[in-house]
Design a protein around this nucleic acid. Structure first.
Lengths: 146, 146
DNA sequence: ATTTTTATTGAGACTCTATATCATTATTTT
DNA sequence: AAAATAATGATATAGAGTCTCAATAAAAAT
């Protein structure tokens, strides 16, 4: 449900004996205000641009909690740092990346749930998620670079 | 074929107008001397322990070339830095990771080639590879942490 | 073989991401 | 309202990875 993420995060915090603060609220809102991938510094900049004063330290700390809560996911490392996306309220999806233009296409494939199920059974794992990234060259970039 | 990696790397370098040097040879050998995952600093330390003097800069540079050549793959980020594995001569595989004990289990799943093929067709991509990581809690770690 | 061209190396400086420290402040509990 | 304790922000610190550049070495040209 849209908008529900605040309640989910508050429940998560309460369960862990952590507190609900204005800073965490500001970060949560900013994270769910856009649908693009983002990184920690960009998030910090956007908050400041809105006139919200949340320190870098708190941005990083809150981001960690959001990932732990499952509301946000680490997507991939690019340019030497992590990139994220919010996942709550969105179907699980994977990423197809072009090695040339670095464009990212989201996709869903019906085979993945089966992979998870087989692994859970074979290794007695309680599988909580997966991260799949397929890479190659998009139509426009094929032929470039050797 | 085992041992072939040197020829593959030399061909790769030649094709790009890059040179075959003692430093690159030392790095290549060390990378293929073990079957575990490793990181750049560890690789550098192992080379020094063998009495081979290859600078950090050259280790990082060579690692980049090895990844580009396809002989080595970036596996995952842990503890804030990248971890690698050599892949030449090994069947493509994915990783199942326990969030508790951090154990990594390699696996192969017959569904992945199909996923690649579908994406290639649907998006006119020339798919060169994928990275799949499934995570959760192993039998021993289930119940730990909330 | 010698010379020329040019990629590579190593040392260290540097950038940047991310975390740790800690006194102060704010939230929650009692 | 007071006590307990988690969170914040400013800054320091750690660590990964890249860049610079003079010196060197590999490959190509002669």
């Amino acid at each position: 449900m849209a908008g529900d993420e605040e309640q989910v995060f508050r429940n998560f915090l309460a369960r862990k004996g952590r507190r609900w603060t204005p800073e965490r609220k500001a970060v949560l809102r900013e994270v769910f205000a856009h649908h693009d991938h983002f990184d920690a510094e960009e998030l910090h900049r956007r908050l400041r641009a809105r006139g919200l004063t949340v320190s870098r330290a708190s941005v990083y700390r809150t981001l960690g909690l959001l990932v732990e809560s499952g509301l946000v996911a680490e997507v991939f490392v690019e340019d030497g740092h992590m990139h994220y996306e919010h996942v709550y309220g969105h179907e699980q999806h994977s990423h197809l990346r072009c090695l040339g233009c670095r464009r990212v296409i989201e996709f869903r494939d019906e085979a993945l749930p089966g992979v998870e199920a087989r692994l859970a059974a074979a290794h007695h794992f309680q599988v909580t998620g997966h991260k799949l990234e397929v890479y190659g060259w998009c139509a426009a970039c094929q032929g470039k670079e050797g």
